[in-house]
Write a protein that binds this DNA or RNA. Sequence first.
DNA 1: CAGGTAAGTAAGTATTACATACTCGTCTGG
DNA 2: CCAGACGAGTATGTAATACTTACTTACCTG
Lengths: 193, 193
Amino acid sequence: MPPGYDKIVGALKLLLKEKEFNAITWAEIARTAGVNEALIYKYFHDKRNLLYKVLRQYLEKYAAQVEEDLKVTSGALNKLKKAIRAHFNAYSQDRIFAKILILEVRNYPDYFESETYELVKHWANSILAIIDEGVRNGEIRSDISARHLRQMILGGIEHLCLPEIVFGREFSPDTLTEELCEFIFHGIRSAEE
Amino acid sequence: MPPGYDKIVGALKLLLKEKEFNAITWAEIARTAGVNEALIYKYFHDKRNLLYKVLRQYLEKYAAQVEEDLKVTSGALNKLKKAIRAHFNAYSQDRIFAKILILEVRNYPDYFESETYELVKHWANSILAIIDEGVRNGEIRSDISARHLRQMILGGIEHLCLPEIVFGREFSPDTLTEELCEFIFHGIRSAEE
DNA sequence: CAGGTAAGTAAGTATTACATACTCGTCTGG
DNA sequence: CCAGACGAGTATGTAATACTTACTTACCTG
């Protein structure tokens, strides 16, 4: 990738720390990157596409490392926990990543036709695979659709850190992981005898 | 409210059926409403504020009715289920409402300073109150932060219907309610003896 | 019926996203 | 060793857009 490309990507990342995507202009990106606006057009054609490319970089950074991690873990519930912790870790380390994924891309239909979304889908599918494995080996109940279980888990992850992401507060990935797993594994009822 | 006000609100609702908020222009809104652009400015000052006002209408429509509903229900878990069903019902009936709340408002920081967000907070607090009640009377476990429990529940609701909202597919509020409650109440593990 | 007030509009303007056509340097094959 | 292809990057334009001002018109009220 030519230097200009990376400068532009870097500029957007930088600007996203301060303001939301829609409030960032071509002019600002170009100025921050130290290049001409037309170069953005050349490499990305439009602002959204640039955003998807930035998200993609983050996804690639984390996806591989997590997949490795999961291979050496046995048991569906253990894997699930590991995957959840990886999520929280990523979101807490790279706030920009979290902001883009949770707040900025979903409102635009063409995101769901982007390559980047394919990566997200792939990642979501690997969680589905873990659940399926758990259902097969009896760890996980089979009377709720695996897809729906996955959605509820992903929703739980997101909403647990959403306030901290929105308001820029710190959070502890480990604490959230423990609580979420307790919730997911046992539900909210108090222990009955 | 003067007729122009309602025409503008109606126009935005109509346009949101076809496209995302950012792709809707002042000119389109004005044309659809049959008024001058300057009238939008007069009543709403900017597009986002108009969006918040539209969301507010929806929130008011549902919030009152749900609160009534909850008063005649006893038991925290029962109330929780009712609240969850109300959510799914609202989202499935008014897709525009769901789209705005889940996809369109969160990415703009000033939303969190709007009156509309206060309504959302109020609604979220009433779920928190249900959980607190459940903790007090022993229905709900006390070893996980009530706030976090609420977040996980809200996240579950959202993510269960998110794909259908994004891709414009139908869904059954009752089925989703049953599944989500099963999940929330008992967790994902298979029943152990 | 004077005068305040609310609804609504005509007519801007600065900014913005996007687009075209160019320059400049480097590398490559004959 | 040089013609010319090619890739990086830019100067310059343009239509559209969000927002603003100053105005008109109709009504209501004392």
